[in-house]
Amino acid sequence: MNQQEAVKTLTISYEVQIEITQFLYREAHLLDSRNYRGWLDLLAEDIVYQMPARITTEGKHDIPNIDYKSRYFEETKQSLITRVKRLDSTSSAWAEISGPRQRHFISNILIEKGVMNDEGNEEYFVRSNFLFKRNRGSALTSEELFGCREDVIRKENGEWRLASRIIYPDQTVLGTINLSMFL
């Protein structure tokens, strides 16, 4: 660690751990309860929201297997607002009419690192696992997606905001008929 990094690196207090964990659970609750407007409020204005594709590669067990060129999401705050607007203010978003029941199971929250960014805001690099389950109509089988997320969670004016999320699915062939949810 060089001197500059040492100055910027933050210790991860118990308080921060609890707050960030609660932030992620709160976020999952807003999504599950379909309070998408409330969810948008948790996102930083400059959010990076990506989902690259998982592929199967040849090699040993630990060979990298994400194809960053191939993606499912590449969003900005404004594009996420458009996605929510489709659900909230049009009458024909058939994929979500009526909304399937969905749960985000978030676990394995691991705060890797905290830094003070150039604007003087605290930013924490946070890993978590997700299991998304969805049930539609009278379906006897439920769809699922799972994987991990790499987030940057930032404190802006005393409020926690999601500044970046990269979603890594574990399925190379997605197990849902669409991605009309947020992960």
């Binding site: 993606r71 499912y72 058939w94 997605l174 991605l179």
Partner: peptide, 23 residues
């Protein structure tokens, strides 16, 4: 590419509804 992702493919706003109706 980003335009494609926003409109077609499983995350695309148009194709999301197609898949629902096919099923």
């Amino acid at each position: 590419y980003v335009t494609f992702l926003g409109t077609f493919g499983p995350s695309g706003l148009l194709e999301q509804d197609d898949a629902e109706i096919w099923s």
